[in-house]
Amino acid sequence: MRTLVGLSTSGWTEKARWALDHHRVAYRYQDYLPLLQERWLRKQVAPGEKPSVPLLVEPPHPAAHGSFAIAKRAEAVGQGSPLFPAAHLDAITAWNSTSEEVLDAARAYAMPRMLASSRVQAEMLPRFVPGWLRPVFAPSARMIMRFVVKKHQVTDGNPEAIEAAVAPAYEKLRAALGGRTYLLDTGFTYADVTAAVMLVLLGPPADRHQPMGPNTREVWTHPGLTARFPDLLAWRDALYDKHRRT
């Protein structure tokens, strides 16, 4: 059985899950435990690669590392309409690069806010921890978050600086869409997936698509960007409702 190892609140993991679900690829999902599983993760990636999730483990085949590689793997083994039409591969790759940069900025915005909130830390604990014990174990979640911040060299995301860094990418998306449903003339592709996921700073998708606690949802939401791009938020939500199979 294929196993997707990831972080439930990660945009990178969400892109991988969306592609797998779109192509109806059967898999088991496993939440990655940073710090505790780091040694295991290093053994799964190729020498010289930075160990990170998402990771698709499917013995005896080599693991697929990263959301883009996992989405391509889903296309190769799954079914349904293509997410990577050959004629638009360059455009899709370019939109994915933009999405990666924005997600890096989103992580820089959210992580310091997570570290400052004991309520978020309680929400981020594994599901098997009962509600009454979550406040007790919140410091463990904070320790893991600090490890993630150090591993990815996350800098303190000043809200004004984050808005200045991200707004041009959102403006570019607005112009490219021009009121259309999809970015490319072939219909729904991975360009739409990767662009939709990078809009997390406008507020994460609805719980029916990506469940998370209310405090966690709040730390990912940038009020300034949300006010500037309501049309992109509406586009993202409509795209999720139409295409996000789970």
Rank of each mutant, 00 (worst) to 15 (best):
P47T: 05
Y32R: 08
T216E: 01
R244D: 11
R244A: 12
V57I: 14
G11T: 00
E101Q: 14
L103K: 12
K50S: 14
A71P: 02
A164Y: 00
R119L: 13
F84I: 09
E163Y: 06
L177T: 01
E123H: 09
A116W: 06
M212L: 14
Y170A: 01
T246E: 11
R174F: 09
W95G: 05
P135H: 08
H243F: 09
P168Q: 09
V193L: 03
Q210E: 10
L225I: 08
L184S: 07
H65I: 04
L201V: 01
R180P: 01
F68Y: 15
A116P: 04
R142G: 13
T186E: 12
R107C: 11
W220L: 11
H22P: 03
S99H: 02
V120K: 06
R24F: 10
M198G: 01
A122H: 00
A176V: 07
L7I: 15
T221K: 09
W220E: 03
V57C: 03
T181W: 09
G48R: 06
L199Q: 02
A175I: 15
A46V: 14
Y29T: 01
A16I: 00
A106F: 01
K43W: 12
A238P: 02
A206W: 12
L183I: 05
W40Q: 09
W12K: 07
L232S: 02
Q210N: 13
Q121F: 03
H88W: 15
T221Y: 06
H152P: 06
P112T: 10
R146T: 06
E75H: 07
W40Y: 12
P112D: 04
A167F: 00
F68G: 00
D192R: 07
V136S: 09
I162H: 03
R244G: 08
A238E: 08
E75A: 05
T93V: 12
R113V: 03
S8V: 05
T216K: 06
H22S: 10
A64R: 03
A141I: 06
Q37N: 11
R228K: 15
A164C: 10
Y109N: 05
N215D: 15
H243N: 10
N96F: 06
T186D: 11
R228P: 10
V57Y: 03
M111P: 02
L233I: 00
T9D: 11
L103Q: 15
M143W: 13
S81R: 15
V149S: 05
V77E: 15
R142W: 03
I70D: 01
V148I: 15
T3Q: 12
D104K: 14
A116T: 05
D90R: 14
A165D: 08
